[in-house]
Design a protein around this nucleic acid. Structure first.
Lengths: 354, 354
DNA sequence: ATGAAAGCGCTAACAC
DNA sequence: GTGTTAGCGCTTTCAT
């Protein structure tokens, strides 16, 4: 054996075996034109040298890094863990690594993330928009570099970019329809900044369901906020000042639904008898509150899976003219006690992680 | 302007300006020996060319990728998000990218993750051990490549590797002491596989606190399981078969504490009056249950921060003889209603994400 | 203050 | 079935 080097390369192996580096490379990559004998010898020498492949060198040479970039607004909700799991599940098999960036809901950091990922020469980017992103040039730029870009959850239809979303309209519709069927007549809605498509869609679904069930749309029952816990509390307190209390709340986030639940309980208002509640996202904590919170599940992990699959497709079809794809997943209403006045509907099987 | 190329390199810029590529490189990197005039010209040309730096090429040349690998057992708990945030917070400033791998608690996938990260030539690895990892050769190998390896939360003292953990012993001690001070005499404990140091430590803290408060250690009050929700339920059901019900449960996970809480409520047993409960990890859902669950906060984000800081130190001090560092963070007992029989102690300020 | 040249480790023509 | 050669894009001596 040679003198032990810290970093062995294919050249070290080649020298040891008196063959060419290219042969070593081919052997290591399972090229069928290399004899089994050579392959075995190379594998053995590689082990002896403690050889470590150098993906970066290969990436530089190949023009593909086998790295996918994932951009998430923030890593603090269950949502994003699930997305990452979904992405990993699909892409680990295809031998990709996941590089992750957070934007903290800041469009500037979002652009910086794209920049960082592009200079790391990721083979694709899977991203969810920051709430306030209104300029999409950084995404167009990424796309123009010829790599697949796929948005999930928070996206924008006007971009020529594939995206996977849930049907927010339908999710809201189902939630409100469920409440109406439970006999609720004054259904309030917590929403967010209306420039964000998902919240606009949910509001649309809310309105449609009201209409379809013969309920009037009352502006004073719609409260806009940032949908955090404290926002939910304040929104509920605001509603309680109305001459007539609403008999249901459909909140566009679980956290704000939770805030409403807390305030109602503090005021000894019965849930769901006096006020029924449905949240959105089906975060794990919803199943542990008292009463457990009904919520619209958005299949986060599935979104991650699907986005990854689209990526794999798009990276293959580099030849064809690009046609952006929109995949809409069906949301699922998970009914728990917070909205179950009449025990008609069948409960879904409960799992902590989706 | 030149004909638009898909990928501009420093050579394109150099040619355009009739200077050398090396000058462009220096200008782009802010080398002080380059005249301001040249710098401006280069910046301008770079913009015109839509130049994208190529980190991989630089990495290959420099022998540093400016990428840190993070290995986590699973992305499904809040824990994960917090760690990633903690790591990002510190390392983004130092211009690092985060590459993430999950092991799904599988030692084989853990070894594969190390392998993948090493071949991606990450500059360091921050990892938490899979529960069943007993062979640490892959970590030693990473270390032997000369890159910093830092473990967090689940680690092993015998490895010559820096790690940042919380004082699990103390966390458990505080929890049990608190229960004892509330007048509990028969305090049960949910634990996990005893080969895992953190659970062994917590059991030790449990025993010590019992002893210091004159309470006997009763083997039948210690239940070993995987500490998921269902495990907690079964453990509690098991305890309820005892001739005398315990008057408190200290669970080594929030999920199992939640399971106990559910079973107790289903049996109309009052919490905390008849049975007080304390969990471990301070997952977000603990503050939303009824009653809210007391828990030991392990400062996840801080662990991520600290691990990253150790990484930055170790990557600097490459010259000195390596001495592994152990940083022990103090856990914090967050007291909520599930264990508050006597309202003496001051509640901590509540925040959703730590 | 700038240029020329070498090389990081790998792979893919192209030869034979 | 294997070798030769060139080069991916960058940085960095060593010149001048």
């Amino acid at each position: 054996m040679e003198k032990k080097k810290t970093k062995a390369t294919i050249h070290d192996i080649a020298r040891e075996l008196n063959i060419a580096a290219s042969t070593v490379s081919r052997a290591l990559n399972g090229n069928p034109r290399i004899s089994d004998q050579t392959k075995r010898a190379v594998d053995k020498a590689a082990k002896a040298f403690n050889y470590q492949p150098h993906r970066l060198a290969a990436a530089l040479r190949n023009g593909k890094s086998k790295v996918i970039g994932v951009i998430i607004p923030s890593a603090d909700r269950n949502f994003f863990g699930s997305i990452v799991r979904g992405v990993e599940e699909v892409l680990i098999k295809a031998n990709y690594q996941v590089m992750i960036c957070q934007t903290h809901e800041d469009p500037v950091q979002e652009a910086a993330a794209i920049e960082a990922l592009l200079s790391s020469r990721v083979d694709g980017i899977i991203a969810s928009l920051a709430k306030r992103t209104e300029n999409f040039d950084h995404f167009r730029k990424a796309k123009s570099k010829g790599i697949p870009v796929i948005l999930f959850d928070r996206s924008n239809d006007e971009l020529e970019i594939s995206h996977v979303v849930i049907d927010d309209y339908l999710g809201a519709y189902k939630a409100v329809e469920h409440l109406a069927r439970q006999g609720c007549k004054r259904i309030a809605h917590f929403t967010n900044f209306q420039k964000i498509p998902i919240y606009r869609e949910r509001l649309r679904g809310y309105k449609a369901a009201l209409e379809d069930h013969g309920l009037p749309f009352l502006k004073e029952l719609v409260v806009e906020s940032n949908l955090q816990l404290e926002d939910g509390r304040m929104s509920m307190q605001q509603l309680m000042k109305l001459p007539v209390l609403p008999d249901a709340v459909f909140a566009s986030s679980d956290l704000s639904a939770m805030g409403a639940l807390q305030v109602l309980k503090e005021n000894a208002i019965k849930i769901p008898e006096q006020v029924a509640i449905v949240g959105f996202s089906n975060e794990p904590f919803t199943m542990f509150s008292d009463p457990p919170l009904s919520s619209v599940d958005q299949h986060c992990k599935r979104m991650g899976n699907t986005a990854s699959e689209i990526f794999l497709e798009e990276i293959k079809n580099t030849s064809d003219k690009f046609i952006p794809k929109k995949i809409v997943l069906m949301p699922e209403l998970v009914i728990r006690k917070s909205s179950m006045k009449v025990p008609v509907e069948v409960a879904q099987p409960e799992v902590l992680v989706n």
